[in-house]
């Protein structure tokens, strides 16, 4: 059952990723991206990361994709149907770059993992923590003890990003406001 679901999610994720690259309108690319993110969230569930699956759907497929959609609508790019794929030498270069990257990752990632790793010691530790503290508590406990400095720093990072986004997107005084 999980294997069937995994294959289904994987096919949707790969198809959506191909749609992002090949989609003619930015809105189509974005909707393909939402499909990819949702199926990656499904794979997170299959890998027993339930909290991250929920966060993936809410933050990624919800908030960040809506931010992209807002910008597309704000700049009125929804009917931007010009073909913008680079062909010729560019596609050759792109295929070789991504083929090399993918092949390299494939050899690194596919080799050292034993088949029964889902039931390993770390996996059973995670399952025990989830059973004891719940899906949120299992992540929150180390996040607020061992990694609390990194957690606070991400708060600072978000603050800096908000200020930077406002400063960059705001038209300077004296500039005409067209968009």
């Amino acid at each position: 059952m999980t294997d069937v679901l995994f294959v289904l999610f994987a096919v949707v994720a790969l198809g959506g990723a191909a749609g992002v690259v090949l989609g003619r309108s930015p809105v189509a690319s974005l909707l393909f991206m939402v499909a990819t993110l949702a199926s990656v969230a499904g794979i997170f569930v299959l890998l027993e990361a339930h909290f991250l699956a929920a966060v993936q759907v809410m933050v990624y497929a919800g908030a960040i994709m809506v931010l992209f959609l807002f910008v597309i609508m704000l700049l009125n790019l929804g009917h931007d149907y010009r073909a913008d794929l680079k062909f010729g030498l560019w596609s050759l270069l792109a295929l070789s770059v991504s083929g090399l990257t993918g092949g390299l990752l494939w050899t690194f990632l596919a080799d050292p993992v034993p088949a029964g790793a889902l039931g390993g010691a770390a996996a059973s530790a995670i399952d025990a923590a989830v059973a004891e503290k719940g899906a949120v508590g299992a992540i929150a406990d180390p996040l607020f003890t061992d990694y609390v400095v990194a957690f606070e720093l991400t708060g600072l990072l978000l603050l800096v990003a908000i200020v930077a986004a406002v400063v960059l997107a705001k038209p300077r005084s004296g500039e005409e406001q067209e968009c």
Partner: peptide
Amino acid sequence: LSAALFAI
């Protein structure tokens, strides 16, 4: 699958 998504 992760490698393939990264390559795409």
